[in-house]
């Protein structure tokens, strides 16, 4: 199968964040950036699908400045065949603007399957994948928790609140990947060496106009410091009293 994976480079999600002096961005000092978690699941899913199919081509795409090449290279060290860097000074927070750039690029790619993470950690919006599918006129599963392909037909599971949909769809299609589909592999030393020789194409991203912009970023209000009310079962009556009289949730 010919599979494309669109990925984003995001800061390590376990970091402590500070707001930059501009107050419209995070302070990137000291942050580690890597492939977004959900993009990692998508890359792994693509590799496994093609391994199971006994061949094919896997291509990664990313929009952003030159540093996204490092992340694209990492995907190739995991086993992806080649990369396309859609160059832009920054990734707009406007998901439709990004989807336009990707759709313009992907429409002539001849892909059987186009995968995305269900959302990226930084913008946490979940727009780009599904919007790209619409712009391409392809069937789309948003946030699949299971995915398989048999011939020209895909099957997926998607979690609803308290239930799950079992879905079937014809290829070509777009699927955005939730956790649970595949745990990403670590690049092997051989993979890292091989990735250095794999092709990386760079071209300007044809972004749509940005109609959503960041006006301000702030940290959420701190929770008041925690309070330990007691030890063991003996503390239960006090807890119940507080839940009734103070928190008023009982």
């Amino acid at each position: 199968m010919k599979i494309a994976v669109c990925m984003k480079r995001t800061p390590d999600s376990e970091s402590r964040f500070k707001i930059a002096a501009s107050s419209t961005a995070i302070d990137e000092t000291g942050l580690k950036f890597d492939m977004d978690d959900f993009a990692g699941y998508a890359v792994e899913a693509a590799l496994q699908l093609n391994e199971k199919a006994g061949g094919g081509e896997t291509v990664v795409y990313a929009v952003g400045p030159d540093n996204v090449q490092e992340t694209l290279r990492k995907a190739m060290s995991m086993g992806v065949d080649r990369a396309v860097h859609l160059k832009a000074d920054a990734v707009p927070v406007d998901g439709i603007a990004v989807a336009k750039a990707l759709a313009a690029e992907l429409k002539t790619g001849g892909y059987d399957l186009i995968l995305f993470g269900k959302h990226a950690f930084d913008s946490s919006a979940g727009v780009v994948g599904t919007a790209t599918a619409e712009l391409l006129g392809l069937p789309c599963i948003t946030a699949a928790s299971q995915l398989s392909v048999d011939g020209g037909t895909g099957s997926a599971r998607r979690e609803l609140e308290g239930a799950a949909e079992i879905l079937s769809f014809p290829l070509p299609a777009v699927v955005t990947i939730d956790e649970g589909v595949a745990r990403p592999r670590y690049p092997s030393l051989k993979g890292i060496m091989a990735a250095k020789k794999k092709p990386m194409e760079t071209k300007p991203a044809q972004l749509g106009s940005a109609r959503v912009t960041i006006q301000k970023m702030e940290l959420p209000p701190e929770r008041p410091a925690g309070r330990i009310i007691g030890e063991g079962s003996a503390a239960v009556p006090e807890l119940v009293k507080l839940l009734q009289n103070e928190a008023k949730v009982l």
Binding site: S13, F121, S124, T213, Q215, M217, E218, P220
Partner: peptide, 11 residues
């Protein structure tokens, strides 16, 4: 955004 660690105001 950032898994609830940052609040964005978007225009």
């Amino acid at each position: 955004a950032y898994a609830n660690k940052v609040i964005m105001t978007l225009a």
